[in-house]
Amino acid sequence: MPTRILTVEDDERIRTSLKMALEDEGWDVEEAQNGEAALLKFRGNPADVVLIDIGLPGIDGFELCRTLRRISSVPIVMITAREDTHDVVAGLEAGADDYLTKPFAPKELSARIRAMLRRVRTVDPALRSLILGQLDIVPEENVVYIRGERIAVSKTEMRLLTELASESGATLSREELLERVWGLDYFGDSRLVDVHIRRLRTKIERDPANPQLILTVRRQGYKLQT
């Protein structure tokens, strides 16, 4: 069954042209012209990837993203018409896995989606779970057990966590994490890493302001303390 993409975009011309271009890339595309319609469609038949335009009428893109995040770990790409840092960071904070600024090439979007859907790398695919100190990571289910508590994470957060875990205590730079998690040709924006690390910390750290598991190594990057 081909991968299904739900495109939430109020501009009809963009919606139609994007649908055609993405279908040419081999994806199944479903459309929604506002947040309410998108939620209805997603609840009825969850898509594999959701594209959200930030400037939606009614429920805005951020709100839709937060709502979807509460019910699913589906990969979300935010699409913005502004290059405001504020919008980008707010989108990532709301739970988006990646973002693109209009106008982008649909081929580029396809590449990002493929990177997002790539199977989670594990040290040994035969192992169902990865136990590191007090962490028990179950990549297949996008779930982390910490001190016995079950915590759901998004696919991107899971990839970030397994990349850090696979280095068993070594420091990974932001650039390395960008390459490994978001795709090799991605260059420049380490806000993606920082915001995702922040979100991951609020989920698995006892005190996110004073992290004990995912540590920041000044001028170098991040490492997982096990």
Binding site: I14, S17, L18, D24, R82, K102, A105, P106
Partner: peptide, 24 residues
């Protein structure tokens, strides 16, 4: 500037996507 950005980027988005369809 923000509005101009939005107003210019949106049609360019539709043009870019349509161009890709045509190129295909």
């Amino acid at each position: 500037a923000s509005n101009v950005s939005h107003e210019l980027r949106s049609p360019l988005m539709a043009l870019t996507a349509s161009m890709e369809v045509l190129n295909h």
